[in-house]
Structure formats: C-alpha cells, structure tokens
Design a protein around this nucleic acid. Structure first.
Lengths: 145, 145
DNA sequence: CTGCGTGCAAAATATTTGCAGACAG
DNA sequence: CTGTCTGCAAATATTTTGCACGCAG
C-alpha cells in the first residue's frame, strides 16, 4: 500500500507537473499528516524540529502548493488562522467558540443538508472545508453550574 | 417600535454597564446594520463617509464592544477577514470558494443537524456564526461548459 | 548545466496597544 | 470636574514578495 502522502506519491504528483521533489516538501507534508489540523506556524515548528533551517516562507509556499495539488486541504476553524490537514479522513469540524476545542463528526452528517442546498439553491456543499461553531459538551456543563 | 440598533437601545445598553454613548459608536452600529455583512475595513470606510476623522482603531474597538454587548455578531466567512452583522435576521451563510459570493439560507436548514449534534456529541450548534463553503450555481455552470 | 525552489530580508496587510487630549455625563 | 473614549503612532502578528544562491534532475 502506498498512501497519498508517501514520498513516492508526492514525487510522482510533482513530476507529473514538471515540479521538483525536495526534502522541505516532504517534511511539510509529513508534518501536516502527523499533526492532524495545524496552523502554518505549528507546521513550521514541527518541520524545524527536524530541519531547523527551513524558513516559514517555505512552509507557506509549500502548503499553498500542496493545497493546489490536492494533497492537503485547509479548513477555516473560525477565530483566524486556517489549519491544514491531509485529505484522507474527511470529516466535519466542530469548533467550540468558548474553549476553542475542535471535535470531528462524520461527514455524512451533512448529507441531507447538502441535498437540500443542491436542490433549492444550486449550491454544491463542500462539507470538510469549514467548521461548524457552537458550544461543546464541557462548556455547556460549566454554564449550568 | 424601537429596533435593537436604535440610538435609544444603544444608549440604554451602554448606560446599564456604566459606559458612554458616543457618535462613533452609533455610526459603527448604523454601518453594520446598513451593510449587511461587512469587514472592519468596509465598516470603517462607511463610517468615514459621514465622519472622516473616525479612526480604524475605534472601529475595531467598537465592533469588539458591540459584539460583547450582543448588539452585533461576527461571522467567519472563510478566506480571512471576519464580517459583522446585526443580530436581527438569523441565517446560514453559503460562501462560494470559487468566486467568493455569499448567499444566505434560512437558519432552520440546519435544525435537524443541530438535533443530531446535541444528541450524539453534546454539541450546541450556533448556526449563524460560521459559513458553509462550496460552489455556487453560477460557478458550477461554468465548470460544465 | 539549467532553472526551479529555498532562505533571507523587506514589504504588505491586519490587528492591538500605550498614551495624552477630548468630551459625555 | 472626572474618568471614559478617541485619535494617533507605534508595536505585533500574519502572510506575501523580490532577489541571489543552491541543488534537483
């Protein structure tokens, strides 16, 4: 088996478009996979743990590249910084606007809504690109006290 | 009738908390109401059409204040800048990630989903705070051509 | 070799903070 | 009058861009 984020897959995708394979690109892809959802800043720190000279600029450029290649995707979790994750396990993000915690829910949660939107608005929903915001279990409990 | 964004309502809300009514605060609230969804930058321009000396700093501070007072709310539409709107007509935002267009859908679209989230995740959904992203009617059409 | 990709510095953008004066109450 | 609010300038944070060198192919 050969996952989408393996060195081979990355090399092939890049070469198919006349682009080059570099250690930096592999490190960024690895970091995105390992961290789950992470901001460019966090990804950069992770990469620098292995290769301290890699510049934040390169991280931004590489994330942008990998996003356009479809190898990672970015999600707007709310407050500000977008977070990046590998495209593998699709899910909806649930962001608590009180404590900032991010949970995940299965994507098909929104399937009925997606159908309604398509029918009534001609709008093709991309469920995993944005988060749903609200209040999480724990913060709700705190309010009750 | 006395809407939530009327000068009187604003004055009262402020006074109840020992805060002061100022022309700047009324102008910002008016701009938010008139513009629908707008970024701090756009709101500032609108305010400056009437009062050119009002500073962007004041707009940021006032938006933050009005948000905490519950007189406006902010929504993360995706790409970057949050947008502010009055709390009156609740709706879900549909953002096209291709052309950037923002449509609105009735909030109760998500009522069934909100129920599922509450039951299965203990998560209380706040539907109007975030946007759903996808591809709008027009951009879908373009893809077909 | 050739030129794409990188690191560095600096620019562009977005938002926040410190402080002295203005003015609401 | 008193203390909050504002405007200005500068600090911070975030992301982008220009350029010369290094390395992938």
């Amino acid at each position: 088996m050969d996952t989408a984020s393996s060195p081979k897959a990355l090399r092939k995708t890049l070469h198919d478009r006349g682009m080059r394979m570099t250690p930096q690109r592999q490190l960024v892809l690895d970091a995105v996979r390992d961290l789950g959802h992470a901001t460019p800043e966090q990804i950069c720190q992770r990469v620098q743990a292995t290769a301290p000279t890699v510049n934040i600029t390169t991280v931004y450029r590489t994330l942008d590249l990998l996003d356009r290649l479809g190898m990672v995707r970015h999600t707007h979790l709310g407050h500000g910084a977008p977070t990046y994750s590998v495209d593998e396990h699709e899910h909806v993000h649930l962001v608590c606007h009180k404590c900032g915690r991010v949970d995940e829910a299965p994507c098909d949660l929104l399937t009925p809504v997606a159908g309604t939107l398509r029918r009534e608005f001609g709008f093709e929903l991309d469920a995993s690109h944005l988060a749903l915001s609200g209040t999480c279990r724990d913060c709700l409990k705190e309010n009750d006290q």
